[in-house]
């Protein structure tokens, strides 16, 4: 019997997973597969861009600055041993553009904006605000989900670029102002080694995909929450855990495709 139960459990897990994927897909499809309504949609989108994007800026900028500074300090200590401390600029810039910028900003975004989205939607569901929209003949997918989704997808790539930019500035503070690398060398080697297509476009592609994944998970977890306080707290935790894991897994796949060959 024990074995049968184990198999049944496995099967139930697989069914739940497929059902969940189906629900998440239906939710997103219902939210975004419409002709856009600019007059009604724009104010909703702008409000969400503020809540999701602008309000995440503080954590992104502060973290970016410190990560850039730490990266530069550790990098300097290694490079100076080989007498190549002028390469600090490209080291910091490429690490940030290729990996740390998109990945760390997505992780921070999941913690800051993703959890907030889940909690907000969970609260709206448990106080019947979503049902009452439906009763007013207003589709909550279009009114609530769609603007939040687009705001997340627009915000995160911009946040990742800001993270990278301020991280490079942090590297400049440590490398040039503190450790005394020549400023001209720092910037010119950096400029000649960063490529538009390979580095900057890939950074934007990566963080756009992370944005879709993180926002989608957060919205799904909130929209399908068990409507009570325990359900909301569990859903919020799940959002952060699942979107972090998804970002890191996806990052490996993307890195392998972009830089593997």
């Amino acid at each position: 019997m024990g074995l049968i139960n184990q198999i049944a459990k496995l099967g139930r897990g697989a069914i739940d997973l497929v059902v969940g994927l189906g629900q998440a897909g239906m939710m997103l499809w219902g939210a975004i597969a419409h002709r856009p309504r600019f007059r009604k949609g724009t104010p909703l989108l702008i409000r969400q861009l503020y809540v999701i994007g602008v309000q995440s800026m503080v954590i992104i900028l502060v973290s970016g600055l410190f990560i850039g500074m730490v990266l530069a300090l550790q990098g300097y200590n290694i490079l100076v041993g080989f007498g190549t401390e002028e390469s600090l600029g490209p080291m910091v810039a490429l690490s940030l553009l290729r990996e740390l910028g998109p990945v760390v900003s997505a992780l921070l975004f999941a913690g800051r904006a993703g959890s907030a989205l889940t909690a907000e939607l969970g609260l709206m569901k448990s106080t019947e605000q979503l049902s009452s929209l439906e009763m007013m003949a207003i589709d909550p997918l279009r009114q609530i989900i769609a603007p939040r989704f687009w705001a997340g997808v627009i915000s995160l790539p911009l946040l990742a670029l800001m993270f990278t930019a301020i991280g490079i500035y942090g590297g400049h503070i440590v490398g040039v102002e503190w450790k005394g690398i020549d400023s001209g060398a720092f910037w010119s080697i950096l400029q000649s080694s960063v490529e538009w297509r390979q580095d900057i476009v890939n950074c934007i592609i990566k963080s756009s995909l992370f944005a879709v994944v993180v926002t989608w998970i957060a919205l799904y977890r909130g929209y399908h929450v068990v409507p009570n306080p325990e359900g909301i707290s569990r859903a919020t935790t799940q959002t952060v855990v699942q979107s972090s894991l998804a970002v890191l897994t996806l990052d490996f796949l993307l890195t392998a495709m972009m830089f593997g060959s």
């Binding site: 106080t127 605000q129 049902s131 439906e134 007013m136 003949a137």
Partner: peptide, 17 residues
Amino acid sequence: ALRKRMSMLFQSGALFT
């Protein structure tokens, strides 16, 4: 279209907060 003719008062009020 039917729901525009009905209305529901939810237990919690369900006002948009």
